[in-house]
Amino acid sequence: MIFGVLKDIKEGEYRVICTPTEVASIISAGHRVLVQKDCGKAAGFPNEAYEKAGAEVVESAEEIFARCDMVAKVKEFEESEYDLIRENQIILGCIHPAGNREEVDAILKSKCIAFTAEDSHRYGSPNCEAAGKQGALFGLESMLTINGGKGKYVGGFAGAPGMNVLILGGGLVGQGALSVLYALGANVTVMDINVGVLRTLSDRYNGKINTMFCTKEAIASVLPQTDMVINAVKWPKHRKDFLIDKEMLKLMEPGSVLVDISNDNPGAIESSYETHHDNPRYVVNGVVHYCVSNIPGAVAHSTSIAYAAVMLPTILSILNDGVVEACVKDGYIRRSLTAYKGYLTHEETSGIQNRPWIPPEVILGIKDRELDYAPPATTTRSTNYYVLE
């Protein structure tokens, strides 16, 4: 196959889906690779490095889409790319389909084969770790007096106490934030709905962090003493309520900070909306909000290396085995199949957008084969199936 690496064009996005190392592996597997000019430049991977790895550097996204059997990027496909997607072409990216109706419209219209990368990770995405760690650092930056924060130092000084930080969610993102903040001396409380996760984290940190079961009422009880909140909860998109509403922000001192790493739309934080690296903060009810949606893009070199390495097996499986066999062998690839030749195959998107869908194993004709198991990617269920004749 001919595989294409696109330059990401989302505002503030500097990562690349494949570094020259992964390109060399794909070529070694017998495929051709085209890369868009400067796709890795901002992340520290010049065109010459891709050429040395054996790739052909081309000028435009138009050429990538026109010549490649499969194209990939880090983030969503943008409006300027919709008409470039070809029928039967395989596309891969963090599509976030349930929250992007227009993008799904374009994908279905094109009759391409689309995979959403965020659902393909068996062991979690390195972008989650990066978002948690770097998000914690951006939160500390937001706490600075010069950025509108109350001006508390994370670990305190002699005679001056450090910060009290509340982390919502004990998954990969929350754990990343915790590792940074704990190391810097913050007094950290982690909330989660899984007591097993809380017990594991408490043991890992020798009982030197606080843990609480996560409810709206529990959050409200600690907000008056909290200097910074980090939201690392993946909020189900069908939920219409919030963990923190705007009125609850008044419980916090002016100049406190809220970092919404999850940045779902809609999400767990009522006052949250997407911002970008060039203007990342705003204030609601006295609380400084940091709500950049692609935090890992700020550390593009490290995140590109980690993410590309994780994505390589998925890319090679699709290229080497084809879509059907890749979905048989790997349940996580199968559950990430978002659209297949004009049919929606993503259950969460069906449930959230009220669209008909068809399970991947049905549309691919593999439901009676022995399939690798993967749990559903989200808790959203849908019985709104296509009526096929």
Rank of each mutant, 00 (worst) to 15 (best):
A339P: 08
H301Y: 09
E102I: 06
K133E: 15
S350D: 02
T226R: 07
Q134N: 12
Y182K: 15
G342W: 06
L243G: 01
P296D: 06
D241I: 08
E59W: 04
E370K: 15
L184Y: 07
A339G: 13
I167S: 02
M70I: 14
D241V: 07
K208W: 00
Y307V: 06
K52I: 10
G351F: 01
A183P: 01
E129V: 15
G124H: 10
V154S: 02
A218Y: 12
A326L: 06
V229H: 11
I95Y: 12
A218H: 14
G170Q: 10
V287W: 13
Y340H: 15
G170W: 11
V74D: 00
G40H: 06
R101S: 08
D330V: 10
S302P: 05
A29P: 02
A374M: 12
R381E: 14
R355N: 00
E13C: 01
E22K: 03
V104M: 15
L144G: 02
M212S: 14
G286A: 09
Y307Q: 06
I95T: 07
N263H: 08
D241Q: 04
Q36A: 07
E103K: 10
E217L: 11
N206G: 00
E78S: 11
I363E: 04
A326Q: 08
S80P: 01
F115R: 03
S317D: 14
A117P: 01
I315K: 03
A24Y: 14
E103V: 03
K246T: 15
P126C: 09
P359A: 12
G286Y: 09
V233F: 09
A53L: 10
